[in-house]
């Protein structure tokens, strides 16, 4: 069986870890590489978390360190959400394998150049690495088979400001560069992990009940995120934006409604990082992004559970 090839760009904290795990465990997918970007965590801690996750899954996927800062802004980490270690204060032991390299951007360009049209890109953090790769080599946009972006908020509230979702807000200029690059992109906004897509207490207990190390890991490391999800976002249970995006990349049927639109990213102070979706086509601008509007919560959870059982 030829497997589908993925590269994951991530700022690994707890929900990124689950998304990585899902891809590593999915039967017809092979993860070629993981590239790190600052975001939830300072770049070094993200790399530690990603490698720990890879090792937990018994894999040897190379992890490359990338950009440590936004293009023009100051970094703003999310320890307040994911815990000081990004992993729900579990303070897992350090990974055994070192980073595979310190030049994630060149590595992205190199890998997509070698296999044009064959590799799917999934981004789970700020888009700095991807923006730089596209600037360095504009043909990247054609070489990427398709790109699933966890980021933005399509015509709805943000989670870091009223206007903006965290990943896009962290480096709005990079996001704007990526959105206008011509790359085939599906944007999966953070809103899809809310409401019915949250894992409630019963579901989390069920996951623990799977009895696997992976299931325990996926729930344990998200304890800080669960608390923040409830106390800070006022959601009923655990929201998992990165795993939701990964679920769509693994199993396209999880997204039940999507359409192409012109989407731009606001870079001014009040609306910094807002993903402005021209839902009605009033700008008459060429659509550049496939926007995910609805997901199937049952199928999403089944997709997640399949990788944890």
């Amino acid at each position: 069986m030829t497997k589908r090839r993925f590269i994951i760009d991530t700022d690994t904290a707890s929900d990124d870890a689950v998304a990585i795990l899902m891809a590593l465990e999915w039967p017809d997918v092979q993860v070629d590489a993981i590239t790190m970007v600052f975001g939830n965590m300072p770049i070094e801690q993200g790399g530690i978390n990603a490698r720990y996750t890879v090792e937990l899954c018994g894999q040897e996927t190379p992890v490359y360190q990338g950009t440590a800062r936004p293009l023009l802004r100051e970094p703003y980490y999310a320890e307040f959400f994911h815990g000081s270690d990004g992993m729900g204060e579990m303070h897992y032991p350090p990974p055994k394998r070192p980073l595979a390299g310190m030049d994630a951007v060149n590595e992205l360009v190199r890998r997509f150049r070698e296999a044009p049209g064959e590799i799917t890109l999934i981004t789970l953090g700020p888009l700095t690495n991807i923006a730089l790769a596209l600037s360095l080599e504009p043909k990247m946009a054609e070489w990427v088979k398709e790109c699933y972006i966890m980021g933005g908020a399509a015509c709805t509230v943000g989670n870091i400001t009223p206007a903006a979702e965290y990943n896009i807000w962290c480096d709005p200029e990079a996001a704007r560069m990526v959105f206008h690059s011509g790359m085939k992109i599906m944007m999966v906004g953070w809103e899809h992990c809310r409401g019915e897509a949250n894992l409630d207490d019963e579901e989390m207990a069920m996951v623990y009940g799977f009895g696997t190390e992976r299931a325990k890991f996926a729930m344990d490391c998200n304890q800080s995120a669960l608390k923040a999800s409830r106390e800070w976002l006022g959601d009923p249970g655990l929201g998992l934006p990165d795993p939701m995006t990964m679920a769509i990349a693994l199993n396209r049927d999880v997204c039940t409604r999507s359409s192409m639109h012109y989407v731009d990213v606001a870079c001014d102070e009040l609306t910094r990082g807002m993903t402005v979706v021209d839902e009605l086509g009033v700008t008459n601008k060429e659509p550049n992004i496939e926007v995910c509007w609805e997901i199937d919560p049952v199928l999403w959870k089944e997709t997640l559970y399949q990788t944890l059982r």
Binding site: T67, A68, R69, L71, D103, V105, N106, T128, L132, S135, L136
Partner: peptide, 12 residues
């Protein structure tokens, strides 16, 4: 200054 900005971001 595009090339210079990319270079400094690529390798500070």
């Amino acid at each position: 200054l595009t090339n210079i900005a990319i270079a400094v971001e690529l390798d500070p």
